[in-house]
Simulated scan of single mutants.
Amino acid sequence: MDTWDIGNLAYLGLLGVVLILWLVMHNRLSLGRTLQQAAGWALIFIGVIAAVGLWDDIRREVLPGRAAVATEGRIEVPRAPDGHFYLTLLVNDAPVKFMIDTGATGVVLSRKDAERAGIAAADLAFTTRASTANGKVRTAPVRIDRISLGPVEDRKVRGWVNDGEMDQSLLGMTYLDRWGRIEIARGTLVLER
């Protein structure tokens, strides 16, 4: 806290004391009711201050995965409450929510997300295997025509469709390598080209 903040805090404190003294003097005949009203206003004031102070946390809870395009070629992703980073990208013009996973080799689509993106999972050959936290799963290699994140579009991205149960598609290194810089700082993932 610098000198300016201390001065502002002292001014607000003095203003609050004067206001309380005026209320007590003005309403000394009905002091009980005045104290109840003052307590109510104090709780409202504390609630507003708490909401303003916690706004970043509230925003991340209510809008997880929302990416802000700070400048062209720069994407900032807030950390979700579960500790992961999520992004919604357009895969062949279909919105797909991804969990960013630097431990994944490539872009891994769930069967459901692949179907939404126009990739017919029934026509794929699940000839490769991948090791996951849940064990080995069968995968089918695919070439994704187009992936868009805000103004940034990539074409012909290598990926896989997972044959196993998968709650979330994964955004792995074959996509992340296309960015020039990846940084995690103060709960925000920054991607820059």
Rank of each mutant, 00 (worst) to 15 (best):
D2T: 09
W4F: 14
G7F: 14
L9Y: 14
Y11F: 14
L12N: 15
G13P: 10
L14V: 09
G16V: 10
G16P: 14
L19G: 13
M25G: 13
R28Y: 11
R28N: 09
A38K: 03
G40N: 10
W41N: 13
I44F: 10
G47A: 09
V48S: 15
A50W: 09
A51Y: 05
L54M: 15
D56V: 01
D57W: 12
R60T: 03
P64I: 00
R66I: 03
R66D: 00
A67G: 06
T71F: 09
E72K: 10
I75G: 01
R79W: 02
P81Y: 00
D82Q: 05
D82I: 04
F85Q: 01
L87K: 00
L87R: 00
V91Q: 00
A94C: 03
V96N: 07
K97C: 09
M99N: 02
I100R: 02
I100G: 00
D101L: 02
T102F: 05
G103K: 12
A104K: 04
T105A: 11
T105R: 13
T105M: 12
G106E: 05
V107M: 06
V108K: 01
L109M: 08
R111N: 07
A114D: 01
R116M: 10
A117S: 15
G118K: 10
I119M: 06
A120I: 05
A122D: 13
A122T: 10
L124S: 06
A125W: 03
A125H: 14
A125I: 05
T127N: 15
T127A: 14
T128D: 15
R129M: 10
A130N: 11
S131I: 08
T132Y: 02
T132C: 03
T139G: 11
T139I: 10
I144M: 06
R146H: 01
R146W: 08
R146F: 05
L149M: 13
G150K: 06
E153D: 08
R155P: 07
K156L: 09
K156G: 09
K156M: 06
K156V: 05
V157T: 09
N162R: 00
G164N: 03
E165Q: 11
Q168G: 05
S169C: 10
W179P: 01
A185R: 15
R193G: 12
